[in-house]
């Protein structure tokens, strides 16, 4: 049987079947469509202005490694004029994060980008290992997720960048849409498909891989032989998200377009005005100045619970050991 020709260029032998479209394509065409689609996403959302200082949230995993690589390629190819940085958060998970940070350090050399590493220990006085020691493995993902979000903002403020890019891919977003519908989280459902989010006091945050399939990221990293860390976190994954993820994988197996179809659905609807009107107004945390819908932000509440030895209970009293975002911005100025 003659080899299949690439369905895009009709010249070269196809080496892969594209998960997103089902087309048989060659390696060069795969690079072309992968990079051009990300560029299209960036241009459509008008993500950058020349001279922007942009931090890439780097964990050493496949998504952030490919993101750093592709951003460097696109920045040079299309003259975005960006000043790119790597920003890593050390959650303090021995045997996992310390190894992945070594990958990030190698990426720094390979991509020639400045790297900043911030740890939970220095920001909050707690490492994830110590948190798990106290709260167990059941809810530790809640702590990690809340702390990381703030840590990235604080790190970005620390190095004076205007914009953080994260490696969230299409699978992550589709999964979040399903999860927010299932748990009735209207506020998050309304914003989870936005490519860029920004609170009053927070730094702009974007997801250039919004329409990129996880499988294609793995393929790209594989063909380009990128150096990434592929071990899963040693602490148990988020059970609720795991539930949605398994379901999504089943849907994708039935019809590969399911991932993009779910994102399209999430983009096609919005929260009704009367529901929005009833939602709690966004304010700032009285302790650390971070955006919050309560007196204390989620991170400060969780920290308070930890300091009082109450595990996962978010107690709304006490002292915040986190750095003040406003204070850090002041220092930068």
């Amino acid at each position: 049987m003659p080899p299949k020709l690439c369905q895009l260029c009709n010249e070269t032998r196809a080496v892969l079947k594209r998960p997103k479209t089902g087309q048989h394509i060659c390696r060069e065409c795969f690079y072309y469509v992968f990079e051009t689609e990300i560029h299209n996403t960036i241009m459509e959302a008008n993500l950058f202005s020349p001279g922007d200082r942009v931090a890439i949230g780097a964990s050493g995993g496949k998504d952030s490694t490919v993101l750093a690589y592709v951003m460097k390629v696109l920045n040079e190819r299309y003259n975005y004029g960006l000043d790119l940085h790597l920003l890593s958060i050390d959650e303090g998970i021995r045997g996992y994060r310390d190894d992945s940070l070594e990958t990030v350090k190698r990426n720094q050399q390979q991509y020639d980008m400045p790297l900043k590493i911030l740890s939970y220990e220095e920001l909050y006085g707690w490492s994830m290992d110590r948190i798990v020691e106290q709260v167990g493995r059941k809810n530790n993902c809640t702590f990690c997720g809340v702390f990381r979000r703030q840590a990235l903002d604080r790190g970005a403020a620390n190095i004076g960048v205007d914009h953080i890019l994260t490696g969230h891919n299409a699978d992550d977003i589709a999964e979040t849409v399903l999860m927010n519908i299932m748990r009735g989280d209207i506020a998050r459902l309304g914003r989870c498909t936005l490519i860029t989010t920004q609170g009053e006091d927070t730094i702009k945050r974007s997801k250039p891989f919004k329409y990129v399939y996880e499988k294609e990221i793995v393929m790209y990293a594989y063909f380009k032989k990128l150096d990434y860390f592929s071990t899963e976190c040693i602490y148990s994954p988020d059970a609720y998200r795991g539930h949605a993820r398994t379901f999504l994988k089943d849907l994708e197996a039935s019809r590969p377009s399911a991932i993009i179809d779910i994102i399209h659905s999430g983009e096609a609807f919005e929260v009704r005005q009367e529901v929005k009107a009833k939602a709690k107004a966004q304010t700032t945390c009285k302790r650390c100045g971070y955006m919050s819908s309560n007196e204390l932000c989620k991170a400060c509440s969780l920290l308070e619970g930890l300091e009082r030895g109450m595990g996962g209970l978010a107690v709304v009293r006490g002292r915040c050991r986190g750095l003040d975002v406003a204070e850090m911005k002041q220092k930068d100025r």
Binding site: L178, D261, H264, S265, G266
Partner: peptide, 11 residues
């Protein structure tokens, strides 16, 4: 509803 969302019928 989930079937509708999963097939791109959010609209």
């Amino acid at each position: 509803l989930i079937n509708c969302v999963s097939q791109g019928g959010g609209y």
